[in-house]
């Protein structure tokens, strides 16, 4: 008997020999069920069926390539280990392990694409739609049982809905309201007060001779250095006072002018100053503001001038705010009037 006997010991017990359906009895497996699927008998395909042939034209050639790739992968992995061992270096780490992973990926993909059965194989689809009877039964179950719940208990149902509604509202308290404070007037006011000194980020008070013409510095009210809302840009546009807008004649002592640094578009710091054109530029969305014209936007998406801080110079020569800002600084919001 030359057939495979299919006998194997299992924990010492001996099984009955099994006869393999094969070419001995002349019933060589024939590809069955071409193009169709049936549960029984299982589709049986001979090893020499053309569907099982690999897609590669030259199998040995492909195998050699895959062997090369796997070897390369092993080298890459080992190389990464060595680089790491030596203290690591980002570029070498990327190269070694990257090549290793790429090579093993390429090897696996090529194995699947070129050496495994090329097919094509087919599978039948089953309609998503159930039969009319099933649909009807499902709908009936949902509706009828639903009715059973609510039958002559409509009042209970309404009470339930009411209770759930209350829960829906109160659950928002911890989930939403607890997250933060109410805005109140926080967006409308800054920490600038009447008479506030202008100080640098390091808290140093600005004196009347600190800036040359064309000079620029970011200032804050004392105690709020670095504050996002209070940030103000102080410029010296000339040596003598000038008028940015009617009614602001006294706001620019000795050519000093101060504007809120918070862009009225999206709130970025208006950080760039072009002395030649006397423009302030926001680098986020390129809004430009005319320094000599009350920071009127001349270009870009900003809708409003930057609010101007009225300045004065006190008897000791320090720059101070005459008044706080006369309007909310920064981008627009619903409550802004």
């Amino acid at each position: 008997m030359n057939r495979e006997t299919g006998v194997q010991s299992d924990g010492g017990r001996i099984h009955e020999p099994v006869h393999v359906p094969g070419h001995a009895s002349g019933d060589r497996p024939i590809p069955e069920n071409h193009g169709e699927v049936s549960d029984s008998p299982l589709p049986l395909v001979a090893l020499d069926d053309p569907h099982l042939r690999p897609a590669a034209k030259n199998v040995r050639h492909t195998e050699r390539w895959i062997a090369f790739l796997i070897a390369l992968a092993a080298l890459g992995f080992a190389g990464y280990g060595a680089v790491y061992w030596q203290g690591g270096q980002p570029q070498l780490e990327g190269l070694t392990l990257g090549i290793g992973l790429l090579a093993i990926g390429a090897a696996l993909a090529a194995w699947g694409k070129y050496l495994l059965p090329r097919g094509p194989f087919v599978e039948e689809r089953h309609d998503m739609r159930s039969s009319d009877v099933e649909r009807e039964q499902m709908a009936a179950a949902v509706i009828d049982r639903g009715k059973l719940v609510m039958r002559r208990r409509g009042f209970l149902g309404k009470m339930l809905a009411g209770a759930a509604g209350i829960l829906g509202v109160v659950i928002a308290f911890p989930v939403i309201r607890s997250l933060g404070p109410l805005p109140k007037l926080a967006l409308d006011k800054t920490n600038w007060r009447k008479g506030s000194y202008l100080v640098t980020i390091h808290g140093r008070k600005i004196k009347e001779d600190d800036l040359e013409v064309g000079g620029i510095i970011t200032v804050f009210p004392p105690g709020y250095e670095g504050n996002a809302m209070d940030q103000t840009v102080l410029l010296r546009a000339s040596t003598s006072p000038f008028t940015t807008k009617a009614g602001r004649e006294t706001w620019t002592p000795k050519g000093y002018v101060a504007y809120s640094k918070v862009c009225t578009h999206a709130g970025c710091p208006v950080g760039l100053y072009q002395e030649q054109t006397q423009q302030l530029l926001c680098p986020c969305h390129q809004s430009m503001f005319d320094v000599l014209d009350g920071a009127q936007p001349v270009f870009g998406p900003a809708p409003r001038p930057l609010p101007q801080l009225p300045l004065m110079i006190d008897s000791e020569g320090y720059l101070r705010a005459q008044q706080p800002y006369d309007q909310p600084v920064g981008p627009g919001f619903w409550e802004r009037s």
Partner: peptide, 17 residues
Amino acid sequence: LDPIAVPARIGAGVEDA
């Protein structure tokens, strides 16, 4: 080739072919 169902069993028959 015409597509076939995925074979659950792959039989012998190498030598014959």
